[in-house]
Amino acid sequence: MSTTGKELPKILVFSTEKISDPAIDMAGLLKLHYPPRVYTIPIPCSSAVKPRWILKAFEQGFDGVFIAADGTDCPYGESCTEKTGEIIRRTQEMLKEKGIEPAKLRMAAICSVCSEAFVKHMKTFTEYLVKQKTT
């Protein structure tokens, strides 16, 4: 990527304390690098993300929001994947209304050892957002 650090898009990640945050930690441990303008806020479960937080993030200048979901590993309940999906769907509707590209909100299940998957997501998401910015 030819863009310098300053111009790189900013991504807010909602990770989960027990499942996806450990994977993000392990990415660091394994020195798997990803763009530094990725910021995480760990929450207990990905089904707890309020759409207003996501909207707030875009409002304040984040270029993308990524939900690192518990998926089927959720320690709280089997319905997590479904519930997180529903939050994404609802929020994407809201983004559309506001004229924000819904694809700037992404979600993927990140298990507690999915470090490589996380890094890959961050790289492709950044690339996508760079393209969005320049076009």
């Binding site: 650090g5 930690d25 392990m26 990415a27 660091g28 020195k31 798997l32 690098h33 530094p36």
Partner: peptide
């Protein structure tokens, strides 16, 4: 550490 110094030791 895990999410900054180690993850971005290249930058």
């Amino acid at each position: 550490r895990e999410q900054v110094s180690w993850a971005h030791s290249d930058d």
